[in-house]
């Protein structure tokens, strides 16, 4: 092999290694910073403790775990039906002209900074909820709606690609048996695209769990376990984002510990996405 090629190859390897190194450094760093406080408080007290009062040195993140789960479920409840429907529409029904209008819109949706989503939630969604339900507006519901919109591009794009990857012979086979287009979609095309659609949902979930700024701006951030979808809520990401600015000492370490939990959440979701079989019908 020529020397220049060998050098290029080595450089590419180094670049790939840097990406890997990045994740390793982050993992080591937050573990090193956060773990001592978890072991001091006790795993059970930290994870299942319902009280988060840094001023008294009480660190229980159970409300935030529940908060993240609630808001994520809410976001999926809103984003998954809309996202998959939109993917079906784009892949199967829309004319090329209509697609050409919708696709850039979706790409734009993916590119909007999350703080803008937060602003929109704060000034539009929150007041609507306040007027409708007479609560303070900042709530699980508000967070779910905004996150539901934020995860749409992930779900739409990945689902659409997997629907389009279904061999057209399946569709023809179904139509030739006298099925309607809709029956072909529901009974043959979607089941064949199942693995890609599930992956899209998991990746959307990871995005919802990890979102910080927009969530802080619209969920109210109370450290109580929410009683209903109209109650304010604080997520794991919100917990770190709000308090890191002024926290010090043990309090700061407890926030790193929150980061560990978040890290584990995201890793599990990514692992899950990897485990989904890629092939249709497998």
């Amino acid at each position: 092999m020529r020397l220049s090629e060998r050098i290029i190859e080595k450089m590419l390897v180094i670049c790939a290694a840097i990406a890997l190194l990045g994740i390793a450094v982050i993992a080591v760093f937050i573990t090193k910073e956060g773990w001592p406080i978890i072991s001091k408080i006790g795993i059970k007290a930290f994870f299942l403790g319902k009280d988060w009062t840094p001023t008294k040195g009480v660190y229980g993140i159970f409300p935030m775990i529940i908060g993240s789960i609630y808001v994520t479920i809410g976001a999926l409840a809103i984003g998954v039906p809309i996202g998959i429907s939109c993917a079906i529409y784009l892949a199967e029904i829309a004319s090329p002209k209509v697609s050409a209008i919708i696709k850039p819109g979706i790409e734009l949706l993916a590119g909007i900074p999350s703080v803008i989503y937060g602003l929109y939630g704060m000034t539009v969604i929150v007041p609507i909820i306040r007027d409708l339900f007479g609560n303070q507006g900042f709530s699980v519901l508000a967070g779910s709606i905004v996150l539901g919109i934020m995860i749409l591009p992930t779900i739409i794009n990945i689902s659409k690609d997997s629907i389009e990857a279904v061999p057209k012979e399946y569709k023809e086979g179904s139509l030739a048996l006298g099925s309607s287009h809709w029956q072909a979609i529901i009974k043959v095309i979607l089941p064949s695209a199942r693995s890609g659609i599930i992956s899209s949902i998991i990746l959307g979930m990871a995005r919802a769990v990890g979102e910080t700024m927009a969530v802080i701006m619209i969920t109210g951030n109370s450290t109580m376990i929410p009683e209903s979808i109209l109650s304010p809520v604080r997520t794991l990401t919100g917990n770190i984002g709000i308090e890191m600015g002024y926290a010090s000492g043990e309090h700061q370490k407890a926030l790193f510990a929150t980061g560990i939990v978040l890290f584990i959440f995201i890793m599990c979701l990514n692992l899950l996405a990897k485990l989904i079989p890629k092939k249709a019908g497998a």
Binding site: E169, Y170, G173, S174, L175, A176, G178, A280
Partner: peptide
């Protein structure tokens, strides 16, 4: 739909659906 029920078609490339043998026929 009725026309295609009456006029069945077999394609060049076998195109069973990715489901069980039974489900393919029952479809």
């Amino acid at each position: 739909i009725l026309l295609r029920k009456k006029v069945g078609m077999v394609f060049q490339k076998p195109n069973p659906f990715p489901m069980s043998i039974y489900e393919n026929i029952a479809y």
